[in-house]
Design a protein around this nucleic acid. Structure first.
Lengths: 106, 106
DNA sequence: GCACCATATATCAAAAATGACATATTGTCA
DNA sequence: TGACAATATGTCATTTTTGATATATGGTGC
């Protein structure tokens, strides 16, 4: 992982580096975070494609605009649960969610 | 949803039926729960295939045997986060996780 | 029967995630 | 410029999820 990427992650609240401060994420941690970021990106795309504001999407999700903003910003405080529920609420089928999870998705 | 299935879900702690007691889950809720159950099932398979006890898997996950049991029992108190992290820790790639998410998986 | 091990279930204090809210920033149109 | 809508960021009390622990249940070999 390069330095710029590390800083981008830390900006979003991710703790990058485990026991040893210099060491990066384990492959498992890394896969997990990248999965979340992929979902996050896909959510913004879907929302915009449906011409919804964050406010409108928040109502569908029974959440708040600020949380939707955090979802789309890839904030570390957002759970996989909320990410996946967001996609589903935006109309994604399990198949489509899977496509995003697989990673070659767009 | 038939009655037996409803009871099985409620046993696991799922709140089945929303505003109206007779009404079942919305399609979104249903998709979300079925996704979790699919992951749960896949986790048990993977763990057994690797000949790990729940205890051993708990150590990999930095969790406890009881939580692993709940993961595999499809308990409602288990998050999607933990389910996906479990699969990853058992060696699943994002592609493989996606296959489970897609639903025609095995 | 009784050890032994794996798994299941219950409970709970601590940690993480949540929605709500306030406020700041950004973009756009006149 | 200024008004406005959308989005971003920060904080926080409440809710949910967590690992840990204890204990119960189930299976297997003796």
């Amino acid at each position: 992982m390069d330095k710029a990427k590390k800083q981008r992650l830390e900006k979003r609240g991710w703790k990058v580096g485990g026991v040893d401060e210099f060491l990066a994420l384990t492959p498992d941690e890394s896969a997990y975070i990248e999965l979340k970021l992929a979902l996050s990106k896909s959510i913004r795309q879907r929302r915009q494609h449906k011409n919804l504001t964050q406010m409108q999407m928040a109502r569908l999700l029974k959440s708040s605009q600020s949380r939707v903003a955090k979802i789309e910003a890839g904030d570390a405080s957002v759970s996989l649960d909320l990410l996946v529920r967001s996609l589903i609420i935006l109309g994604a089928t399990r198949r489509e969610v899977a496509h995003v999870v697989a990673g070659q998705a767009r």
